[in-house]
Write a protein that binds this DNA or RNA. Structure first.
Length: 454
DNA sequence: ATAGGGTTAG
């Protein structure tokens, strides 16, 4: 009784240290506690292993497993599930599978959680077939799937570009008596919105209203974001103010969604107000928040404020990411300060940041350095619809309509998505400079592409 | 111990 009480105390202490990410300290406490006669148990170590795998890395978490064994405590299914979750977070499916094997080897049977996590990992790295195999294995071994299992599959399908299949699965499951949770609805609505199936998403949203589930903050964020994405800004802001009326406590997701929308519309003053409000609410700022703020400053052309914030980020132990750099480079390009943009890009490999490269191409055209833009374009090993759209606009701007024509024809035959304004610019340019034959060819190619796509 | 929402380029 005394032992179990002290173990529980120890576990509470370890859990709080893990929560504030003082992991070295937590382990030191365990060692001291043992010396003082406390007896750690599997929960003590599982807490630590879970925290290491979440905040540090799987290797570090795995080394705790060794020390756990040395202390005479046997790992259980939760120990391994934490490690598998860590490997999954790092997109290491083979590592997850190894852990799965090792678990089997040690006589620990994987449970629903283990399988769910493993499936999630395969979806995350874009291997839905492998995830499906895991699901079959699960059935074979009589491990009963749960709501999370299906939510993982629905999410996985959405994230691998199969939102319609996800919806079909959802319908099938419901027919079989599956009770969706709010997570199921949120996942599906978000997936459909991102695949530009907002009408279907609206249908699922109405279905949620009729179900026994209650919508939550994530539902609202998802729907609001969906409105902004489809250009329905008024409706998006309306959802935000409705949430406020209902007395919702906003988190960083809500604020970042709204602030970005305001920044996109150039409503900088309102963006600042929301930023202030966010700070007043005491929302903890992560890298996404800082990126959102830096973007607001960049939109305003306040590059020194943007940089100041970047320095602040490094001061609080956060790591700037590819978003940060793309935002800053775009900021410089908008101002026509191509040198600063280049200098910034040089510190980061261009190949690994397609958005930044796209911005730079845009910036080069903007200052009239079309040949340099073409050189950069040709050097890119990966290009996307944005790259081509920016190129087309740039080439039209400096009157190189035939070059634009060639690129656009290639895009059409390769089904690369090009903005309609870029297509229009090329057609008009060709016509006005007398390239009638090319214009005709292009227009019929555009018509044909439209027919084939839909 | 697993699943869902937020940040960049035309």
């Amino acid at each position: 009784m005394i032992y179990s009480l002290s173990t529980r105390l120890l576990n509470i202490c370890i859990a709080s240290l893990c929560k504030i990410q003082k992991l070295d300290r937590a382990e030191a406490v365990i060692i001291d506690a043992i010396r003082l006669g406390y007896i750690p148990d599997v929960v003590t170590y599982n807490t630590l292993i879970s925290a290491y795998s979440r905040f540090v890395g799987v290797d570090e978490a795995y080394s705790v497993l060794h020390r756990m064994r040395e202390a005479g405590i046997k790992p259980d299914v939760i120990t391994y599930n934490s490690l598998i979750a860590g490997a999954s977070r790092n997109c290491q499916p083979s590592r997850s599978l190894d852990l799965f094997e090792e678990m089997h080897h040690n006589g620990i049977l994987p449970d629903t959680w283990s399988y769910n996590t493993l499936m999630h990992c395969f979806f995350k790295v874009g291997q839905p077939e492998e995830a499906y195999k895991i699901f079959c294995d699960m059935e074979l071994r009589n491990i009963t799937p749960c709501v999370t299992t299906y939510n993982t599959i629905i999410n996985g399908l959405c994230k691998t570009g199969n939102a319609i299949k996800a919806l079909r699965l959802f319908r099938d499951l419901k027919r079989q008596g599956f009770a969706p949770s709010i997570v199921t609805y949120n996942t599906l609505i978000d997936g459909l919105c991102k695949s530009r199936k907002s009408r279907l998403a609206g249908g699922v949203l109405r279905e949620l209203g009729k179900s026994g589930c209650t919508r939550d903050l994530k539902t609202c964020t998802t729907v609001m974001k969906c409105c902004f994405r489809s250009g329905n800004f008024d409706r998006g802001f309306e959802i935000f103010s409705d949430m406020r009326k209902e007395g919702c406590a906003f988190d960083s997701f809500v604020y970042c969604t709204v602030i970005s929308a305001l920044a996109k519309l150039g409503k900088i003053k309102e963006a600042y107000e929301r930023m202030e409000e966010m700070m007043k609410d005491g929302v903890r700022l992560d890298m996404v928040c800082y990126n959102t703020f830096i973007n607001v400053y960049c939109k305003q052309g306040e590059m020194s404020l943007a940089h100041q914030l970047l320095n602040e980020v490094q001061g609080c132990g956060l790591q700037s990411d590819e978003y940060t750099h793309a935002i800053l480079i775009h900021g410089f390009c908008k101002l026509g300060d191509i040198d600063s943009a280049m200098a910034h890009l040089e510190r980061r490999p261009a190949e690994s940041n397609l958005v930044a490269s796209n911005c730079l191409i845009y910036g080069l055209f903007k200052v009239g350095r079309a040949d340099f833009a073409l050189k950069l374009f040709n050097e890119l090993s990966i290009k996307d619809g944005f790259t081509y759209t920016i190129m087309l606009h740039g080439l039209c701007k400096c009157g190189r309509y035939l070059a634009a024509f060639d690129i656009l024809m290639t895009c059409l035959s390769n089904r690369v998505k090009i903005s309609s304004s870029a297509k229009r610019a090329v057609c008009i340019g060709l016509r006005e400079s007398g390239f009638r034959k090319e214009e005709r060819k292009l227009r019929s190619a555009i018509r044909l592409a439209r027919l084939l796509v839909s």
